[in-house]
Amino acid sequence: MPPNAAPRYTVPGITVQDAGSVIELLQLRLHALNDLHLTLKHVHWNVVGPYFIAVHEMLDPQVDRVRAMADDVAERLAALGGVAHGTPGRLVEERTWEDYSVGRADAIAHLGALNLVYTGVIEELRTVTKSVAEIDPVTEDLLIEQLRDLEQFQWFVRAHLETVGGTLTTAGAASETEAARQAAAR
């Protein structure tokens, strides 16, 4: 954390140094949630095909909940004495992942790509949750709650991609475009 961004105060029972570490982790989670919110809306607007309405309507509650998650993370970050940077420029500058790559596409293709997005968000959130566990159980609790919801959303997505035999049509895909192709070819 840059010296001028270190908190000057934090919540009782946590050192300013530890709070600074948690703030750094939460800032990247804020970027991830803001990015996920926009990605979900992008899919919502650009989905076509026979499953259009089912996917279009499935995504609305996910968008709303992810937006609320971002707000919760930003508020926790501020409570710890940090500054929640939620501007698009900061998100693009500081993110560690590529932009969503699928435009107008079949519903199943988007779901294939979205499954990989959820995997990335969830894996990183699990890592961050472990990192904050010893320092701040309140932040850990917040992140665990978000994990539960994100994993359920991924389950909703994966249900469209699963075969009767229990395998994912996107198994082994290394990129969103590859997952989209595999899912659409099903």
Rank of each mutant, 00 (worst) to 15 (best):
V73H: 07
Y51M: 06
A174N: 13
A6R: 10
F153G: 00
V55C: 07
L80A: 10
V22G: 03
L150E: 03
Q152K: 12
Q182R: 08
W97N: 06
P12E: 15
A171K: 06
E57Y: 11
T129G: 01
V138H: 08
Q62S: 02
A174Y: 07
A84K: 00
T39L: 02
L116E: 08
I135N: 02
L30S: 06
T10L: 04
Q146T: 03
Q62P: 00
W155G: 05
R158N: 15
N46L: 08
L168R: 02
M1L: 15
S175W: 05
D35N: 11
A179D: 08
Q27T: 13
Q146E: 14
S131D: 15
Q17N: 13
L40Q: 02
L33G: 11
F156A: 04
A171V: 05
G86A: 13
Q152T: 09
G86M: 08
P61F: 07
L25F: 04
E151I: 05
G13P: 01
T39C: 09
D72N: 09
N115E: 13
Y51G: 08
V48Q: 10
I135Y: 03
V102M: 02
T129Q: 05
L161A: 14
I14L: 09
T15W: 06
R186W: 11
K130W: 01
L168W: 07
L36G: 02
L142D: 10
D71V: 05
V43E: 10
I135C: 06
G81Q: 00
A183F: 07
A173L: 11
R90K: 02
D141I: 05
L25Y: 03
T129N: 05
T15C: 08
G82H: 07
H110M: 06
T170P: 14
H31K: 00
S21D: 14
L111R: 01
R90L: 12
R186M: 11
I144N: 06
E162W: 06
E94C: 07
V102Y: 04
R67W: 06
L143G: 03
G172H: 12
Q17H: 11
D60F: 04
A68T: 04
H56A: 03
A68C: 02
T163S: 15
F153I: 00
I14A: 01
E98R: 07
D18W: 01
T177S: 15
D99R: 07
T170K: 01
L168V: 07
V22M: 05
R76S: 12
T96S: 14
A54H: 12
